[in-house]
Design a protein around this nucleic acid. Structure first.
Length: 222
DNA sequence: TATATGATTGCCT
DNA sequence: GGCAATCATATAG
């Protein structure tokens, strides 16, 4: 098992998002021991992206505005963590991408448990099936015990890092992202088709198409 | 300062 | 499939 280098993240966000499929997420937990999951679903977020946090402030007034607030993390060192809380129950884990000074991040949406599954199950009391353990961005953070303390952490070294194990690259499918209300047409979601741990929600363009009856949903799934 | 809302989850019918 | 939970951040006044 080999940790990914910082250079792995100093690349275009879409490439990083796609290449992270099949990669291991490793957590050395002082209390629970080692937890490992294989990444099966990611999403990319970029500077020219209406779904990007703080994008509006960044491009305000027609000139370059210094990034502020939580959005500043997107411009930071590639390979560091951007962790934030959505609503009041869920933490989401992102990796910062692109060279320092450029905005970009990849959201880790789902992993397949490999090591420490008993601990994950303990931390996910609401999970009724095995697939519920880590089949969503908030779920996997709960299973791995991740929260705001990891915001800004270096993800190229313990206690939380990415690693390769020499397994062959999995098949990759793309779709619109899930759950967004802006930027829903961009095909920035990558997943391993058929894997039971891929999160269950429909891509956001399908969701909106059904709601508005435009019939715009095309067969992007699979 | 005040109000609207979201990169979700889980429990309800 | 609908809907509530009730926090941080963004945006308006």
């Amino acid at each position: 098992m080999k940790p990914l280098s910082p250079e792995s993240f100093t690349r275009p966000t879409l490439e990083v998002a796609r290449d992270l499929l099949g990669v291991l997420l490793v957590r050395e937990d002082p209390e629970a021991g080692r937890l490992v999951g294989r990444i099966v679903e990611t999403e990319a977020y970029r500077a020219d992206d209406p779904a990007m946090h703080g994008w509006k402030a960044e491009f305000d007034e027609g000139g370059f505005v210094r990034p502020v607030g939580r959005a500043a993390a997107f411009f930071g060192t590639p390979g560091t963590a951007y962790v934030y809380r959505l609503y009041y129950t869920s933490w989401l884990l992102n990796v910062v991408t692109e060279p320092e000074g450029m905005a970009g991040a990849v959201l880790i949406r789902a992993v397949e448990p490999l090591v420490g599954e008993a601990v994950m199950a303990e931390r996910r009391p609401a999970a009724k099936r095995r697939a519920d353990l880590t089949s969503g961005p908030g779920k996997l953070c709960a299973a791995f015990g991740l929260d705001g303390r990891f915001h800004g952490a270096d993800l190229t070294r313990p206690p939380l890092y990415f690693a390769t194990d020499g397994a062959p690259a999995p098949p990759v499918a793309t779709s619109a992202r899930i759950g967004l209300t802006r930027g829903i047409d961009l095909p920035y979601r990558f997943y391993v088709p058929g894997n039971p741990f891929v999160s269950p929600g429909p891509p956001s363009d399908v969701r909106v198409a059904r709601k508005t009856g435009t019939g715009r949903a095309t067969g992007r799934r699979r």
